[in-house]
């Protein structure tokens, strides 16, 4: 498709540690079109951050290695680029906003300098002060001259967004941009990202574990579980009728948090260990619908409805024939 900006195919990112191999990202397919906002949801530890870091080729190596796959950005497979060519993509074509604004700014460098160094060519509209203004920082002249520890978490996240947007990249990856912030600030930061997206037409890959944020911000969503994409589709369709039992649970628990706090529903069991993931469908130890086949064979990703894919034996024809255990 002409319109596709980012196309990740069969991405595998493993960590080789003394205990064995952590399959953090294990065959992820994902794409983002121009101007589209795509969500990537899943519990903590399922590999969302490492998917994002793989796209930027920022996986800490060693121990992390991108083992397989292709990451097409327009007509370039980023995985084939050398480090020097890759640098031209970072911050210009793809930018990233990180999870924890407290630790991602250099503590001994002034904020203004940290923004200035990413600017490819400062022009009248693209100055540090203009950028700080554009992300809603009230006193940009003062803030530019301050150190990160002098700013609040919300302000620091705005600075990080200013850094990410400095060169107007076509794709912005936001990795849980509000998780570390106060609830009131969270809404402001999401608003800011939304504004940027509509004003600049930036494509967005938004990583979160909060389905509420996805509903508010995204056009399409990928549900990730234990290093794999288990369901994807447009936000409307997935919220209306989630297909994968994990997505169903995720949705129920997010609704119960929002509406009936005392009646909190969560998915039973714990996130699997990616050093030794469960056989077959990785969700089977926690799945209320698990069948005998689920333990043995991995379901493939199938298109159940137009634009809505799921990886679950419940939807595979021969899977359904193999009855319940």
């Amino acid at each position: 498709m002409e319109n596709i900006l980012l196309d990740v195919r069969g991405l595998k990112t493993y960590f080789h540690i003394s205990l064995g191999v952590v399959r953090a990202v294990d065959g992820v397919n994902l794409c983002v079109s121009k101007g589209e906002a795509v969500g990537l949801v899943g519990e903590s530890g399922c590999g969302k951050t490492m998917t994002a870091h793989s796209i930027m080729k920022l996986v800490p190596s060693p121990p992390g290695f991108i083992e397989e796959g292709e990451i097409w950005f327009r007509n370039t497979d980023l995985l084939r680029l050398g480090e020097q060519e890759m640098r031209k993509f970072r911050g210009r074509e793809v930018s990233m906003v990180f999870q924890d604004p407290m630790t991602y700014l250099n503590p001994v460098m002034k904020v203004g300098k940290q923004i200035a160094e990413v600017l490819v060519s400062p022009t009248r509209d693209r100055t540090v002060i203009k950028l700080l203004e554009s992300v809603g920082i009230p006193d940009p002249l003062k803030v530019a001259d301050q150190y990160p520890h002098e700013l609040s978490g919300g302000m620091r996240q705005r600075v990080l967004i200013a850094i990410a947007m400095a060169n107007d990249p076509p794709l912005l990856i936001a990795d849980e941009p509000t998780t570390a912030l106060d609830v009131t600030i969270q809404a402001q930061i999401l608003d800011l990202i939304k504004t940027i997206k509509t004003e600049k037409g930036t494509s967005l890959l938004l990583i979160t574990h909060d389905l509420g944020i996805v509903a508010e911000m995204c056009d399409r969503v990928y549900v990730m579980y234990a290093g794999k994409i288990v369901e994807s589709g447009d936000v409307f369709s997935i919220f209306e009728e989630p297909l994968h039992p994990y997505a169903q649970g995720l949705l129920r628990s997010s609704l119960s948090i929002a509406e009936f706090r005392e009646n909190l529903e969560t998915i039973e069991g714990t996130v699997p260990n990616l050093l030794d993931p469960p056989s077959g469908c990785r969700f089977h130890p926690r799945c209320p619908m698990a069948m005998s086949v689920c333990k043995e064979k991995e379901p493939s990703l199938i298109q159940e409805k137009p634009g809505h894919e799921v990886s679950c034996w419940l939807y595979e024809k021969d899977g359904r024939d193999r009855n319940h255990s």
């Binding site: 870091h53 930027m56 920022l58 800490p60 640098r87 031209k88 993509f89 970072r90 911050g91 210009r92 930018s95 990233m96 990180f98 924890d100 630790t103 991602y104 700014l105 250099n106 503590p107 160094e117 990413v118 990080l160 850094i163």
Partner: peptide, 11 residues
């Protein structure tokens, strides 16, 4: 983390 940020800037 701030080194990861520096890398993500394309420095």
């Amino acid at each position: 983390d701030y080194i990861t940020l520096a890398r993500s800037k394309g420095l």
